[in-house]
Design a protein around this nucleic acid. Structure first.
Lengths: 223, 223
DNA sequence: TGTACATCAGTGAACGCGCGTTCACTGATGTAC
DNA sequence: TGTACATCAGTGAACGCGCGTTCACTGATGTAC
């Protein structure tokens, strides 16, 4: 059995189990038994459970962040100096996520759920790791958001970005369960693409709601 | 030491620690040492760790759900047959949360974070408990949402409610950290009321975005 | 070509630790006669 | 009023268990001379 084989089997099993159950609720024994490898192999190849978690994220986030940089490059080229709109920026992000190479529908679903969990479970080491590894595309996304919403104060923008992250991370982290409920209740099949297509207009409308401090009661309108 | 004293000390300590660190990352030993009570007292008074978690939620959710029912009663009386608007419904909810009796600013913050964690950490037993204990006010809120957004299809409404829950639960579950960041970066003090005041227009605008399936590309506008 | 050694993926068993839970027990208070 | 018993909050110590990690070891493959 070549090294890559064992390493990949561990990564595959860990990815699925983490997405299903979260990090601290998934033991190394579950992972190694699902991967049919020896318990000690995780520490041999990765060093620790935390390092394994980092590797699981790195395996899909590194290609994703490359795809994303490319999408942002294209977007800025097409806009020729003008800042891209909010809608365009969000679409560049979501389409990069949905069109991940080497990932089928199920793989994208897992990828989404892991992203949601990363934000949602308070794993300090993971947050630090992601911040230092992927600060560039994240910062670029934030800059685009800022340019697309010049009408917002810094404080308003800050909070609305948190609301967006929340809606996205939460929905993604439980998207499987939510799709099942919808299937059972209304008999509707839903793909990850459908969810994303519904999410983007919701987020864009929320981001562009009228200033809450100026008109806190009336119906919101587009600025 | 009277019973109520020990029980309350355990509940107080558990509430704070759960809010800080989540459920499975908080051990009974941490709780009992913070509460200065014997380790075995938790199992003596509550029976198990899960039952303690339920009691922590029941202690603040029962008065909250009473307050909420009252707020909905008043809202429907004032509307005299007409269904309340989305904005009114959301405000009734958030104001009930913010005006919880016996809870100061810090207490409200903890309460918010626990609510966020309840949705966010996949504790099956807790979800079941909350569903069967508080299905009435939850169902009523859903009915009001439905009446306030007659223009949405059932599927659209379903997803947008998930987006709302996500933005709310996520923001609330990390509201302390988010407020600290804002304090450090922009030097701005923020109260829970401020966050809620910003959240409601965002949610209302998102809920009322134009139909994503009809106008998926253009800038969103209010229906 | 043959031998000695180095490297390295993988293994089996055990380690110490913190966890939730249990149990026999104490000591104060209330109750029956 | 005094005695025997019941109740119950609270305690100290231990239980068994699953956890992440460690360690001595194996066996296959590559390399130097």
């Amino acid at each position: 059995m070549a090294q890559s084989d064992t390493v990949d089997r561990i990564l595959d099993a860990a990815e699925e189990l983490f997405a299903e159950r979260g990090f601290s609720e998934t033991s190394l024994r579950m992972i190694t038994s699902k991967a049919s490898v020896n318990l000690a192999a995780v520490n041999y190849h990765f060093g620790s459970k935390n390092a394994l978690i980092h590797s699981v994220f790195a395996r899909f986030l590194t290609p994703f962040s490359d795809t994303l940089e490319q999408a942002f490059d294209e977007l800025e080229q097409n806009c020729a100096g003008e800042p891209p709109t909010l809608d365009q920026t969000l679409r560049a992000l979501t389409e990069s996520a949905v069109r991940m190479p080497q990932r089928n529908e199920r793989g994208i679903s897992i990828f989404m759920r892991l992203l949601g969990l990363a934000y949602t479970q308070s794993q300090g080491h993971l947050r630090k790791f992601l911040e230092q590894q992927y600060s560039q595309p994240f910062g670029r996304f934030m800059r685009l958001l800022k340019e697309a919403t010049p009408q917002l104060s810094a404080v308003d923008r800050y909070w609305r970005i948190q609301f967006m992250l929340g809606a996205t991370a939460f929905t993604m982290s439980s998207s499987d369960a939510l799709r099942d409920i919808l299937q059972n209740k209304l008999g509707v099949e839903t793909s990850v693409q459908d969810i994303v297509a519904r999410l983007v207009p919701f987020l864009a409308a929320g981001m562009q709601a009228s200033d809450p401090m100026q008109a806190p009661v009336g119906k919101p309108s587009v600025a």
